[in-house]
């Protein structure tokens, strides 16, 4: 039941890790690293699940998510948010912005995988 995942993230090593984890499970992983063009990338790739980092060059993950939720095409797109800022305020902001899941870095690989699976099947 593997599908397409779009990963929006700018740290090369983290991209490498997540790509490895999801690919091994059979997911097709696309990567985009620039905040400003992220929304366009989502429309173009039309993923099943979006994995979204918060701190991106150019534009924050919260803003990108807000745009996606305001658009009819992407308003129901399952989104997993990742952030290196582990405070409760960051989690609240992510949930308010419309994230389906929220994970703090560093994460356990199997948790990311499970979250993506859940989001895709929901």
């Amino acid at each position: 039941m593997a599908g397409r995942v779009l990963l929006i993230e700018d740290e090369p090593n983290i991209i490498e890790a997540i790509r490895f984890i999801l690919s091994r499970d059979g997911w097709h992983v696309d990567v985009h690293s620039i905040g400003e063009t992220a929304v366009a990338a989502v429309h173009e790739r039309a993923p099943d699940v979006l994995v979204l980092d918060v701190m991106l060059p150019g534009r924050s993950g919260y803003d990108i998510l807000a745009d996606l939720r305001a658009d009819k095409v992407t308003e129901k797109l399952p989104v997993l948010m990742l952030t290196a800022r582990g405070q409760k305020a960051d989690r609240d902001m992510a949930m308010r912005a419309g994230a389906d899941r929220f994970m703090t870095k560093p994460f356990a690989n199997e948790d990311v995988l499970a979250a993506v699976r859940d989001l895709a099947s929901a």
Partner: peptide
């Protein structure tokens, strides 16, 4: 937090792999 967690994320992910 961000500056510490970012390298630790890679370290944890790859060590788990």
């Amino acid at each position: 937090s961000h500056e510490l967690r970012t390298p630790m994320t890679s370290i944890r992910a790859f060590s788990e792999i």
